[in-house]
Every structure is written in C-alpha cells, then in structure tokens.
Simulated scan of single mutants.
Amino acid sequence: MVFEITPRSGTAFLLNKGQKLTVIDPRGEQVADLLAFSRADPREVISSGRSLDYASKLFLSTGDPLYSNRSKVMLRIIADDVGRHDFLLTPCSEDTFRIIYGDEHPHRGCFGNLAEALAPYDIAPDQIPCAFNVFMNVQVDGGTGALTVEPPLSKAGDSIVLEAEMDLIIGLTACSALQSNNHAFKPIHYRIDDPVA
C-alpha cells in the first residue's frame, strides 16, 4: 500500500528491523525530511555528523548507512534513483521562514509538522535532530563553503529505498520550504515492505 503525505505536512510511523521504506516523489522536485529514532530508546537518533564522518563524503546514496548518535546503523540505503540528498540543513521551521524569508506569519514548517507527528511517541521538539533531507539538492562552493539550495534532481516517480537495521520510529514530511522544492508544494508518497521470506 502506498501512503500519501499531503503538501506541507508530516507523519510518523513504526518501521521494524528488516522492513524497507520506499520514499517516492510522485510529481518531481519535492523534498521529504526523514527522521529516525530507536524504538528501544528514542534518545538514540539519526545523526548527520556520524553518518557523514564515517562515510567521508557529503552525499550519501546506494549502499551507504545512516548512523545514530550512538554510532549504530539505523537505516541503509539499498536503492536510489536520484543520488542527491542533503544531510546538512535542519528541518525548516517558523524561525526559518522568519529569518531567511522574512515572513511575518510563518508556517510551522517541517519542524512543527514533525513535532506534532512524533508527540504521540513521547518525542519532544528538542529531541528533533538534523533530518536526512531526501531529494534535497544543496550545493557547496568548494572555495568559500557557501551553501545554495537548488531545485531537486528528482523527477516524477523517482524513489529511494532504505532498509531498517533496528526497530525504529520514523518521522517523514512533504517539505514546506519554497526554495527547497523549486517554488511549489507537492505531496510525498511512501511504502513499507516486509522482508521477503
């Protein structure tokens, strides 16, 4: 079964060890913020610092593991149509829209959507780390280190597949930032598949 996350919203769900999570961009150029928490102890969370450090690269794709803050593999990328995702930038929030875009009445962003979706799992807002930003295209200037957010490279129907290496709580959004999504808000689809017996 394929589930839909409506534009500028988010959800949370359980993912068992061995299950595969497929995140799909049904229309193209739409980012999805992905979080993972250990179900055994939600203080163990997905870590961009650990994952990028151990991979020795900025852009993770097929075969790369996503580590926790305790240096355990939480998820592994097993298929990837796009090959460009971001693991540097934090989930957009009311403050993002106020500080970067100057919005007087800002949307709560992915951070607010994730906080609401994760609350039933007793995960507080301050526990939300930097997300693995699926399909987000962040460019880094090699000379100055300046970051620019470019349109996602994902086309309609492109996907990434991640396999859980522990029992997890997952947070997932259809990103709320105009700049990240080439100035249009679209849905994100996802599917969970059990291991093949």
Rank of each mutant, 00 (worst) to 15 (best):
D64R: 07
I188Q: 00
A55M: 13
A197P: 10
Y190D: 03
K186M: 05
P151D: 11
K17W: 02
R50V: 12
R191H: 13
A32R: 01
K72P: 01
I128W: 02
A117G: 11
V161C: 14
Q127A: 15
T173P: 02
I170V: 14
A40F: 11
V138Q: 06
E150M: 13
L60N: 02
T6Y: 06
E163C: 10
I46L: 15
A32G: 13
Q179A: 08
E29R: 09
N181H: 08
E94N: 09
H105W: 15
G63N: 10
V45W: 03
A36G: 05
G49F: 15
P120V: 06
Y121P: 04
V73Y: 03
I46Q: 02
D33N: 13
K155V: 05
R84M: 10
R27T: 08
F13A: 08
N113G: 07
P42K: 11
R76E: 08
A117D: 04
S71H: 14
A184P: 02
V31K: 00
K155A: 09
P129Y: 03
P106Y: 15
T96G: 03
L34R: 02
L178E: 07
G102M: 14
L58Y: 10
Y121R: 03
D122G: 08
D126L: 12
S176F: 04
I192L: 11
S93P: 06
L168P: 01
R98A: 14
P26K: 09
I169H: 01
F13V: 12
S154C: 08
L118N: 01
M136P: 02
N69L: 09
L153F: 10
D122Y: 12
S56L: 11
R43P: 05
I5L: 08
R191T: 12
R70A: 14
E163P: 04
K186G: 02
I100G: 06
K20S: 12
Y121V: 05
L58K: 09
L88R: 13
G18C: 13
E150C: 11
R98L: 08
L15F: 06
F87Q: 03
K72T: 13
Y67I: 08
L168S: 01
V138K: 03
E163Q: 15
E29Q: 15
E150F: 10
E94D: 13
D194M: 10
Q179N: 11
V149T: 07
D53P: 06
D86I: 04
V196A: 12
R98D: 04
P187A: 09
N182V: 07
G171I: 02
M136G: 02
L153W: 07
E163I: 13
L35N: 01
Y190M: 09
D126E: 15
S154Q: 04
K17H: 08
D25Q: 08
A79Y: 06
C130V: 10
V2P: 02
H107Q: 12
P125K: 14
L118E: 00
I77R: 01
T144F: 15
N133H: 05
I128G: 00
S51Y: 05
V149N: 01
S38R: 08
N133T: 05
A177Q: 07
I77Q: 00
I5G: 00
L34K: 01
R70F: 14
I99V: 15
L52N: 07
A174V: 06
F97S: 00
D86R: 04
L178R: 04
F3G: 04
K186Q: 09
A146W: 09
A177F: 07
H107G: 10
N133M: 04
T144A: 14
P42R: 09
D86A: 05
L60G: 00
L21N: 01
R84H: 13
